[in-house]
Design a protein around this nucleic acid. Structure first.
Lengths: 351, 351
DNA sequence: ATGAAAGCGCTAACAT
DNA sequence: ATGTTAGCGCTTTCAT
């Protein structure tokens, strides 16, 4: 079945003609070892291609350089970037990461959460599927945890997220100032804090503009269908605001299928700035989220807890930037392919 | 530092008033245990929130339900989808995955490869950074391994990839038939097998069309600069073919910045079909790769090896589909926003 | 400076 | 059917 085992510390010891304790000391730079021993041990390690067994090491030393990461969906570019950044930071600090995806399924999240404990990670960084995160934690859960991006309905963990309401409000204000009189806001589900906060931000910021909300779920054919019917059967809104990447994609596709011109027939803005948004038509106005900064903050918060820092859970809000592009231009002279892009930093948020 | 330890099997045993062996037997469904014992053990497990320590379990049983996965870059949507699919398949088979990214860096790949061994995974699935994969394997590497997507300069491992040459050739033939007389082919580096094979496929298939190749690297400002100079300083090609997602994005951006109309001024095709390619202009003609199928095949191949299947390394090539869209239309009546999409399955490849 | 030996949490032999 | 015990690979006292 499995081929010859990997070399153990004992094989290294016998090859180097020393005790296993000495090998361990050399490997971990502990205690005082004579240069001669160090050389012999390193030679044996080299020749055998020895690598320590992390599991055995942790078992005995009772200290783990492992952190768990759970995200709702690895194929979401936002989360992929988050994990990628995290992975790099972790490595720099000597940590390994066990990464799991809940695949947008609360039940699967609960399952993974239970499973991840089997690895005895020192800490956990989680982007919850929805607000009911706590209810999916296994009984007796006691791993130092930092939540990111989505906010649960309780506050027992450190938390880092973006300033959704302020950024979404800035977009709404922009649309308002451009003179659009009504706006269809499209999100997945209000049970996701990001969507809820963005919607609330829009409501608080809109002045002249009347608002309408549509929840279409995540990759849900029924939701998409309702969306399309809404656009076809009732009077078209002057503007649309998609509250995340998935809905932005869906919205743009429907708009294209209906043959509507952006911004000539309808204006369009998105929360989440993806690369393609600079390329379509005259560009899509979008909120750019500081994903890397969020990952850095999350890792920092976790590091502190692992270093023993006590105290109440903290919440950090990160500021977003708004990219104003052609899709929300007031006068609709669509000069195909040309990008009139004007970058504006909105100042808002605490942090 | 770390809070109260997670409960051990001994605590479960004492709480249930049984021996640790019985607890282990209940947990693993081994041997014969009376219903009474099962109930008592499960109750104690529940109350304590006990989860087995995978590391200790593997240490003793000498069998590991862990597989390693290494990809060049997690933020590449192709690889993210690959990992996500893999993760699901692994879970179904009871496996955990330790996922690492090389961040497009050969040195980092070597580092991760060495590090991943510390986990003693039963098997490994790797998408190599480039052809010199073998040179980055640690001495004494003996983990059953399946390579995917990119082909190394040796053949000691099972391998699954797409039929690059055939698919790229089909695109070249299409461009040729559309009447374009010259084509600028843009790739990252020929040292990546995908790029090389696609370029060879194009060369083999083009008839009337003259070809020119440009290697621009991965996120390399110098390469981008050279690319832009090429377009500005010499006569524009009638068509361009980007050999992967990154170069497609770069190409499309430069085209937009130069104010060129697609396909009016220049035709454009891409290897890798991303969601936005249906949305820009009249759509981008693209090769759609079977990423999920590739992940499935890779997992299947690995499973077989883990089950003890011997024999020579096998290579599997998966067929791609071509999506013909407006960006390669012969007559350039660019009706902004309207998508004239015509799906065509190209039959080619073995497997 | 080096080594012998105990023991981390668990499973697999082997008793009973 | 259940319990006792050895030992997986490692680190850490504690002797020497």
């Amino acid at each position: 079945m499995s081929r010859s085992h990997s070399p153990s510390i004992r094989m290294v010891a016998s090859r180097a003609g020393v005790s296993v304790a000495t090998v361990s000391n050399v490997l971990n730079g502990k205690a005082s070892v004579s240069p001669d021993m160090v050389a012999r041990v390193n030679k044996a390690v080299e020749e055998l291609g020895y690598v320590v067994d992390i599991a055995a090491s942790r078992l005995r030393s009772r200290k783990s350089l492992l952190a768990g990461v759970i995200v709702p969906d690895l194929t979401n570019p936002m989360f992929a970037a988050f994990v990628s950044t995290l992975e790099h930071l972790a490595r720099v600090d000597g940590f390994d990461l066990v990464v799991v995806s809940a695949r947008n399924d609360a039940a699967e999240e609960a399952d993974r959460l239970a499973n991840i404990r089997a690895w005895r990670p020192a800490g956990l960084i989680a982007i919850p599927c929805d607000g009911a995160f706590k209810s999916r934690l296994p009984a007796g859960f006691s791993i130092p945890t930092v939540l990111a991006d989505r906010i649960p309905d309780h506050d027992e963990f450190d938390l880092v997220a973006v300033d959704n309401a302020a950024a979404a409000g800035a977009v709404a204000r922009h649309l308002d100032e451009q003179g659009f009189r009504n706006c269809l806001v499209v999100g997945t589900r209000l049970s996701i804090s990001n969507v809820r906060e963005r919607w609330e931000g829009v409501q608080a910021a809109a002045r002249q503009m009347t608002l309408e909300l549509l929840e279409i779920g995540i990759d849900d054919p029924v939701g998409l269908d309702a969306f399309e019917r809404r656009l076809r059967e009732r009077s078209k809104p002057q503007a649309m605001f998609a509250l995340d990447h998935g809905t932005a994609l869906a919205t743009y596709r429907i708009v294209a299928e209906m043959g509507l011109k952006v911004p000539g027939d309808i204006a369009f803005a998105s929360f989440d700035d993806m690369e393609w948004m600079q390329l379509v038509g005259s560009g899509v106005t979008a909120v750019r989220q500081p994903v890397e900064a969020m990952a850095e903050k999350a890792w920092l918060l976790l590091s502190r807890r692992l270093a023993g820092e006590a105290g109440e859970p903290v919440t950090r809000r990160l500021r977003c930037a708004i990219e104003i592009r052609g899709s929300t231009a007031r006068s609709a002279v669509s000069r195909g392919g040309e990008t009139e892009s004007l970058k504006r930093e909105e100042k808002h948020g605490n942090q």
